[in-house]
Amino acid sequence: MTGHCASGMEKNKTLWEALISQRLAVWLMGLEIAFLLAGSFFMVQYKEVSGAMNGGFPLYLWLTRGPFALTWWLWAAILLLALLTVNTLCCSLESVRRKNRRSGLLTLLAPQIIHAGFLFILVAHLMSSLGASKYTGQLPQGAAASLPGFDIFLNSVQPGPKPAAEVELFSGGALLERGVLSPNHPVFFRGYGFYLEELSADPYPAAYILVSREPGAPWALFGAILFIAGTVLLVLLKTGRE
């Protein structure tokens, strides 16, 4: 019984050591690079399939409905990212557990902040892959279009070198939001972003409007801030010490 227990503990220890190993991280990153390289060539070779990756529906639909012969590289990349996530979490936990052996708090914290940032960015991609949506279409000036929960009305368009379009959002006849769309200046409302894609004057003034929902965006930004904060800290520590 004791021997069985000891053998189980030994197995757990070996598994933990494998999970916290930097060798594993290097292998996973190397393989991830290989699959992304393969993916980049598939994307160029089969544009009719890869073009839909940026379509109006969540990525998981592309992934689950697309031909496996062309999507396998992304499945493999996701599997490796999942393993890398486990490896990152375990490495961070182990580093914190062994904190007494490290030289200082900041030296301990910097890589963990970077790892946390990386994980938040992965969570953001996961959320967007499951819940992102896009609607795009032409809206003539003075016309409205229905969206889930509200209507969008194109009040006016301003063509020229600085194109802009004024839109109003309604629900049940009540004005919810009014804003001016121009390139790089969308209007955000209830998790949706409203973007001006193009203006046309002929045969009637109209705007091509994109309505986008990207649920991972705030998490990606949060992860990015953590990632940069950790990297800045690491650069300061390493350039001072190395």
């Binding site: 992304l36 390289l37 980049s40 967007s128 390139p183 973007y195 990207e214």
Partner: peptide, 26 residues
């Protein structure tokens, strides 16, 4: 995100940029 409504586009250039970033992480 401000221009096209998404912070990530699936194109070869973006993928290669990620490869470079992963490579230097490695």
């Amino acid at each position: 995100y401000l221009a096209w409504g998404t912070y990530w586009l699936w194109t070869a250039k973006e993928l290669w940029t990620s490869i470079v970033w992963l490579y230097y992480s490695l």
